[in-house]
Structure formats: structure tokens, C-alpha cells
Nucleic acid binder design. Structure first.
Lengths: 254, 254
DNA sequence: CCAAAAGTGTTATGTCTACACCCATGA
DNA sequence: TCATGGGTGTAGACATAACACTTTTGG
């Protein structure tokens, strides 16, 4: 009785106008490191609904492009950044009423950028801003649509991907110090990691980071100049660092 | 220059008909264990396009329901199963031309069921079938739309989630033996796991499995009767078993 | 008694963590 | 020479994997 003969629900005499029409958008959560904290790019809405509230960038998908292409195009249009260094889909949102004007299903993407600061600086300060994720997650910001939920899901995804993928390298430049890389993990996970053990993990076994021979200039307070590395190929398969409380899963509970 | 004032691309004088209309569907990859192998539920298409080819179940999203609700409804309509024991979204697909009739964006869900065998048995054999994932992944099956890709992504997701979530328990019944649970890992990952070490991992520290006091009947060839357990609460946070080659990431390569 | 499958014990090996210690720089 | 951060060494705690061994059933 259950399994009906399957044709995507389309009757033999097919007529597109009989089926509910949706607008499909792509929205992009753009993340970047700023002052050792994780930040999100928001733009200020200029029209109703949600006029004056913060929203993440996005726009309509066109029929002749893929979802990935739409995300890349929107990223380019909104920030001028063409290098889709890291742009990955992480969820779809289609609750009724999420857009009061019409039925909209949005496909959410996550992007990690380095030079967003310059983008924002070259913009009307009221129109775009980099804000700490902590403020978005704690509800301090008044966000448009269901963007609070989308940002929350994006950050959760980054926390997981930090362990599972090479996303950490997207937060640092083409060359970087071990301390810079460690700062990414500490900011995203909100933990402290032992510098000595962290270094061993990434530099001891070759493939994670490749020495460039150059050194970074120490800060104003001095200190030994740090070695500069570039990312190795091992990041394509996953990350070298595990989240602290991750391995001791289920010790003596009950 | 880049960041444009943002309003989802909708001009001030808004008119819905100016924006591309899409049909939105949900498609469900239904997985189950059968004879110690991972299987997918396919239904045979009765009409063009792709008439006669295998497809995964799915259907149109309605404007007044969420995506999750649409998936649950479709699962119920196609299999008669109401217990959304495990139903999670894992991707959206919107390539132009993926449906030759119209612009369709589909949101894909993953479901793990136990009693699909009964569902298929009560159906016209030509209309539905459980087929091994290996056949779908190797391209032996001729699948409709982009369903080959969707199934591939679903299986990849399960392989990862086996380590990160409690999805393994969805493949076994309300009570199960340690060997049954181990068979899930071995089938999904395609590896052999040491029975002794596996058992220690799940039964030693309480919280993973809870003894029921009952025992399973041995097979025809005899053997010690296995203890029956039910799943504990620790599975809500992740799984106890790690994929073998996972920890030794990046040994001595180069 | 034998085969088969469940379950326990043991041990070498590997990994992680914490922390002591040394190095190179700016002021 | 002192403060600061980069970088190395090391020992104990802990986790892993391999496999020998015991237990309990059906035939």
C-alpha cells in the first residue's frame, strides 16, 4: 500500500503552473579572523522587510547557474572577492514565512576570507560591518529573517570542520606562523592549546606545513622571530588537531 | 564599490513575478542494513523523464510546511513509516537541467530505517527495491536525475557521521548484540574491526550500551549466546568507535 | 568432543599532556 | 639584562591493537 509508483509527484499530464513556486536564494556566511576573534560579515538592509537590520549577504539563484555558481557570483558581487578559496554549502532553509513577501527557500554557504577588512573599510560604514560571532550567537544583534539560526549553524559547522577538514588554513594567509594557525583553533573552539604540543603536531610530520625559510618580524615587545610556513597537502584530507574534550568521550558518567 | 546595499536583491518596487520561479522538492536516501550490507531503497519511475529507471523517493515541498516536515511527510507517504527515527538534511542540488521539465531545486535527506524489508515485500516487486549501495556507487545502476550523485553524497555522510554521531544505533533494533553493532561499522566503513577491542570500547564505560539481562539465541552453528543491550545516552554526543586509518593521519609521507 | 561465536586477559606499542627548559629578539 | 614569545626535550599517564585464552552454545 505505501510505496506509490514514483514520478516526483508529477502527474502524467504535466503542467508546471500546478506546482508551488518558490524563489530560491543563496545566502553566504562570511567568516574571518579579526583581532584573534572570529567575525561575521553583515550588511545593513535598506528596505522592508527587516529594514535597518543586519543580514548576511545573498541573492537569487538564476535558472541557468548551479547553486555553487550562484554562491560564487553573489560573493563576488557583494565583496568583490573572486577567489572562491573556500565556499561550501552547509544547509537549506525553507520554513514557511521566513520571508514575509513570498515563499523563499535559501541555500546557505560558508565562506572564509582573509581581506574582508579592506572590503568593509571601502564601504559606507552603515552598510556593512564585521561583527564578532559571539554577539550574533548570544542574540545581542537583531538579525533579519532567520539569519541568526543560519549563522549559528555555520559556526557550528566550522567548529566541526576544523577537526575534519583543512578549513583552518583558509583563515591564515599564504604564509603563516604556527602561532597564527594555533590562534585560529583557539578562537573558533574557545579553548587554550599548548603551544609546544600544537607545534609538534603540525611540524613534526611533514605534509601539514612546509617551511619557507623566512621568518616573521617579532612584535613590539620582542620575542624570537617565528618561522614562516605555507600549507602542505595533508590538509586536503583533514586536520591534524583534535578538539580537546573530544577524545575523552564518555568517561565515567551515568 | 563592492558591497551593495543589501535587500536580497529585491528592488524597492517589488514584484514576485519578476524573479525566477523554482519547484522545490525533497528527496530521501533511505538506508538500511540487509545481510550485513548497506542497502538503499529505490523506486521505479513510471513516467518520463527517466521512465523505467531507479530513483530515490521524494516529492514537492508545500508552501505551508518546513523542509523537515516535507521530508517526514514524503517518507510516510512512500514507505508508510511514521517514526522519523533519523531523518537529516545533508545537501541541496540545483544544477540547471537536472530535471528536463523545469527548474527544480531539491533538498536531500538521509533516513535510516529498520523494517524497510517489509515495506518492499508488500509492494509490487517492479516498483520498489532495496539494492546494495556498492552497486549504486560503482555506477552499475542506471539512476534517474542526479540521484547517483545524491546517493554517493549520502553514503559519504553516513561514513563520517558513524564516527561523529550516534547514527550507528539507528541501524540496529531497540535491543541488539555487540556483534550486530559492530557489523554496522564494518559494513559502512568496509573494514574489519577486532571484536574484543570493539566490545571493550562500548561496554566498558557505561553510557554507550545498557544491558537488558536477556540474551540472543545463537545461530544454527551454535556459539555462546550474546548479551542483548539497548542504546545509552552517550550516543547523543557522538560515537565511541573511530575509523581505523583515521588517527594515523599523515605519517611519513612526502 | 568439536566447531563456532561470545567474551576476558595481557602486553607491547604508540600517543597525549603537562611542564621544564633553551633560544632569539626588542627595548 | 630583562621581558616576551618561539621552539625543544622528556617522563608519566593514557589509549590502542594484536592475539592468546576461556566460556557457552549446537550438533
Amino acid at each position: 500500500m505505501p510505496t506509490k509508483t514514483r514520478d516526483q509527484g508529477v502527474p502524467a499530464a504535466y503542467n508546471p503552473s500546478e506546482f508551488p513556486a518558490f524563489a530560491v536564494t543563496v545566502d553566504i556566511v562570511i567568516l574571518t579572523m579579526l583581532k584573534s576573534r572570529l567575525h561575521v560579515l553583515f550588511v545593513r538592509r535598506g528596505v522592508a522587510p527587516f529594514e535597518g537590520k543586519w543580514a548576511i549577504p545573498g541573492g537569487f539563484k538564476r535558472p541557468n547557474e548551479t547553486l555553487d555558481q550562484a554562491a560564487k557570483r553573489e560573493l563576488s558581487e557583494e565583496t568583490g572577492v573572486d577567489s572562491a578559496s573556500l565556499l561550501k554549502q552547509f544547509g537549506a532553509y525553507g520554513d514557511p514565512g521566513r520571508d514575509p513577501r513570498m515563499n523563499v527557500v535559501t541555500v546557505a554557504y560558508l565562506a572564509v576570507l582573509l581581506d574582508v577588512g579592506a572590503v568593509v573599510a571601502g564601504t559606507d560604514a552603515a552598510a556593512a560591518a564585521l561583527l564578532p560571532v559571539s554577539e550574533a550567537l548570544t542574540g545581542k544583534l537583531d538579525l533579519a529573517f532567520d539569519h541568526a539560526r543560519i549563522v549559528r549553524d555555520a559556526v557550528e559547522r566550522v567548529r566541526v570542520d576544523l577537526e575534519q577538514t583543512g578549513i583552518a588554513t583558509a583563515f591564515v594567509g599564504p604564509t603563516f606562523t604556527v602561532a597564527e594557525l594555533r590562534a585560529v583553533y583557539e578562537a573558533v573552539w574557545g579553548v587554550h592549546l599548548d603551544g609546544a604540543n600544537f607545534r609538534r603536531r603540525v611540524v613534526t610530520e611533514s605534509g601539514w606545513v612546509i617551511p619557507t625559510g623566512r621568518r616573521a618580524r617579532p612584535g613590539v615587545a620582542g620575542g624570537k622571530p617565528a618561522e614562516l610556513f605555507r600549507a602542505g597537502r595533508l590538509w586536503q584530507q583533514g586536520g591534524p588537531i583534535r578538539h580537546p574534550q573530544s577524545p575523552e568521550r564518555g568517561k565515567g558518567n551515568q
